[in-house]
Simulated scan of single mutants.
Amino acid sequence: MPTSTPKLVLHHGSSALAICQAPLVPLPKTLSYPQEYTIRAPPGTDLWRKPPAVDIDNAPTLLINVPIDLHSFHSARVTVSADWNTLYDQGGLALFIPDEDTKKFLKTGVEFAFGEPHVGTVAASRWGDWSLVPTAATGKITIHVEREIDEKGERTSSLWVYLIDPQTGKKSGIREITWWFRHDIDDRVGEPASERPPQVLLVGLYAARPKVPEGTGRQEEELVVKFEGFEVTLFDD
């Protein structure tokens, strides 16, 4: 029988990988967190990987404290807001997949760049990339990620990032990460379901303030990011 909705636990950087060692447990098909959450990110925090040698992983994250079967993951969404005022201020959804040689991650939400808030997304395997999408919002958005289903109703290797219209609820696709579920696809070809080793992922929220704010007395000023309506859904099987 499904357990109750697991708690969110605060982590900093790679300490979160310990969750992956826990056994998989039955979960509700909808993990709902209706209360408001806050993450405080001090200057110098980030989740970023860029060649030849940048690999920063000290951003505070609120993660669901049990691993999720990668094959079961369907979607996640949250509404995020803050007083974004310093270059690269950011916060939103964070997903992690442990791998043989590194930790794959996706972060998507608000990021302050070029003097205004954008929808910022980074997907990282060996290295990360970065995309920015302008938004008419002044700093509060609802972001949604969802596994792609093909015309046959089969799950593909892609994860889509959507921006949700606050008035209509319409989803606008802004990014496709084509390889996110690669292990789930590769590991299942020609292999009986009973013999497939589960691949897990971690899902939660994050905030980061890579730069020190400008101005007298602001050297240690934290970015305070608020999250509302965090929800994760799983497939029925």
Score class of each variant (00 low, 15 high):
Arg182Glu: 15
Trp48Asn: 09
Glu100Gln: 14
Thr168Asn: 08
Glu146Val: 01
Ser194Thr: 10
Asp187Gln: 11
Thr108Ser: 14
Ala124Leu: 01
Val9Cys: 06
Ser158Ile: 01
Lys104Ile: 13
Thr5Val: 15
Phe73Ala: 06
Asp186Asn: 12
Leu202Glu: 01
Leu132Glu: 05
Asp46Arg: 02
Ser157Met: 09
Ala113Arg: 04
Leu62His: 10
Glu231His: 01
Val78Arg: 00
Glu221Ile: 03
Gly13Thr: 04
Arg175Glu: 12
Trp160Lys: 14
Val133Asn: 04
Thr3Ser: 14
Thr102Phe: 15
Trp127Asn: 11
Lys171Phe: 13
Thr216His: 12
Thr138Ser: 05
Pro23Phe: 10
Leu106Cys: 11
Leu234His: 03
Pro67Leu: 06
Lys50Pro: 00
Val212Lys: 13
Thr233Gly: 04
Val78Ser: 08
Glu221Lys: 10
Trp179Asp: 15
Asp69His: 15
Gly13Gln: 06
Thr38Glu: 14
Gln90Thr: 10
Tyr88Thr: 03
Gly109Ile: 02
Gln167Leu: 14
Ile185Tyr: 07
Ile97Asp: 07
Val200Glu: 05
Asp186Pro: 00
Leu17Arg: 15
Val189Gln: 12
Val9Ile: 13
Thr86Ala: 07
Thr156Ala: 07
Asp99Gly: 10
Pro60Glu: 08
Trp84Ile: 03
Leu234Glu: 05
Phe73Glu: 07
Ile97Met: 10
Thr138Leu: 06
Tyr88Asn: 08
Ser131Asn: 10
Arg182Tyr: 11
Leu132Cys: 04
Gly128Pro: 03
Lys226Cys: 06
Ile68Lys: 03
Val145Asn: 00
Glu222Tyr: 01
Ile164Lys: 08
Phe73Asp: 06
Ile164Trp: 11
His144Arg: 01
Glu222Ile: 01
Ser4Gly: 13
Glu195Thr: 08
Lys140Trp: 00
His74Gln: 14
Pro2Cys: 12
Arg155Val: 08
Phe96Leu: 15
Gly109Pro: 02
Val122Leu: 09
Ile97Tyr: 02
Gly139Ser: 02
Glu195Ser: 13
Asp237Leu: 01
Asp237Thr: 09
Pro134Gln: 03
Asp89Gln: 02
Thr135Cys: 00
Thr30Tyr: 03
Pro51Ala: 13
Leu17Ala: 11
Ala136Trp: 01
Pro43Ser: 04
Ser158Glu: 06
Gln90Phe: 04
Trp160Ser: 13
Val225Leu: 06
Gly92Pro: 07
Leu47Asp: 03
Arg155His: 11
Thr3Val: 13
Glu148Pro: 00
Arg209Phe: 04
Leu106Trp: 02
Val25His: 02
Tyr37His: 15
Ala18Gly: 14
Phe235Tyr: 13
Ala76Gln: 07
Gly109Phe: 06
Pro198Ala: 13
Pro2Ala: 15
Leu87Glu: 12
